[in-house]
Design a protein around this nucleic acid. Structure first.
Lengths: 224, 224
DNA sequence: CTCTAAAGTGACCATGTGGTCATTTATGGT
DNA sequence: ACCATAAATGACCACATGGTCACTTTAGAG
């Protein structure tokens, strides 16, 4: 597990473009190609990691999936871990379903607001592959702390903060009777975790509808 | 990944005892020794797997932990996977905290019953290492279906069944106002999953108290 | 078309690891 | 003490895999 720091004498542009995103006007294949290639790698990596996990994935298999040579991968990512990290970052910080930015309507109860904005997002979780990402974080987070970091900052913490502020608003309006949710916004998302785990790891034969689970929890804390 | 089926001409007793548990009255080291050795292996394996996960564990490291030679492990388990399986089976089907068998007192409300019997168990989850097992299931369950199977049958399904029956009882007594919990007993344990994931994978720096989380959920569904 | 820099390649290497087995060590019966 | 048998050992092997690099291909500029 020794990582040599030696760089090649002639710096490759791909790696640089991949990092800085700056196009360069010189000779050689179009810099747009580097973007396409990078995308191909990322897409293949997502599939590979989701299917096999981090440890189970191989750079060779990944390269084959992307229809590239193994060496090419290393023009874009210095190590397997860097590739993993980059992929997760890409997905998590996607133009995500930012239900968090939708405003509450005048006169709308907090519960109804969450049912209107958050519930649809949660119902989509498994279809959009966001559940899969969550699964990878669960599976590999303990071994690769950067994974948890990326996920926490890109998705988890923002959502918790949003729920917390909603809970506080509801509390101040008297729409919640206790401060459980304000103190533990985790409670509202917990059914998602429970459902994802149930479906993916424990009982694939009898899956639960994660959306229904979330809705039931929502309705319990914010009665209709 | 080719597994040869060839057995040695002279069958080793260790493997046999390990499987059948039958002592044999012949010469050679006492058969009790095989039991001790097996225990040493299992204990070391638990630690190793919990610490590094399945893929991350090595048979050599495991052997060192157990203060045995690598070859010895293969006298008790045919493959790394078999060892993993055996270990998980051992733990899950332990003399577990069978709060499920405790009876409800006459006149006791279901909520109080659960607070009395289930809450302490949940509070102990992280200390007793049961949370770690759950973590391993989460991490490796997708890759090793038998893991989910063992966990489901040994721990998950019994608990869900217990909660479901409690929920039905409470519903019939009017102590619950809707059938959410009866339909989705998962909701009551969901905070555990959420908490474990939060603490282990996402935000080790700001852990939540899993027991508190569970209690808050319990109090929401069964108000005091 | 030619030249040149960048993109892409895949044989190769070093390392780590699951699994084997001939040999050695321990132990109870005689 | 000695034997027979089971338990334990660790050098060894085959192979997979992360990472490298000298070389080939591609394509824009002149």
């Amino acid at each position: 597990m020794v990582t040599l720091e030696s760089r090649r004498k002639i710096p490759r542009k791909a790696a640089i473009v991949a990092k800085t995103g700056l196009p360069s006007r010189t000779r050689g294949p179009s810099p747009k190609k580097t973007a396409r290639t990078r995308n191909a790698i990322v897409r293949a990596a997502v599939d590979e990691f989701l299917e096999r996990g981090f440890a189970g994935s191989t750079m060779a298999g990944l390269a084959e999936r992307a229809r590239l040579a193994k060496g090419t991968l290393y023009l874009y990512f210095q190590t397997k871990e860097a590739l993993f990290s980059g992929v997760v970052r890409d997905i998590v910080s996607n133009p995500l379903s930012d239900s968090e930015s939708q405003p509450i309507l005048p006169g709308e109860r907090v519960g109804d607001y969450l049912r209107r904005t958050l519930l649809p997002v949660m119902r989509q979780m498994e279809k959009t592959g966001r559940a899969s990402i969550a699964r990878v974080v669960m599976a590999e987070g303990a071994q690769f702390p950067f994974l948890g970091d990326v996920y926490r900052e890109g998705a988890y913490e923002p959502l918790l903060a949003h729920i917390r502020s909603c809970a506080r608003l509801a509390l101040s309006r008297g729409e919640l009777k206790d401060d459980a949710l304000a103190r533990y916004p985790h409670l509202l998302v917990a059914p998602l975790w429970g459902g994802i785990i149930h479906n993916a790891m424990i009982d694939q034969r009898h899956p639960v509808d994660v959306g229904d689970l979330f809705e039931a929890q929502l309705n319990t804390y914010f009665p209709k």
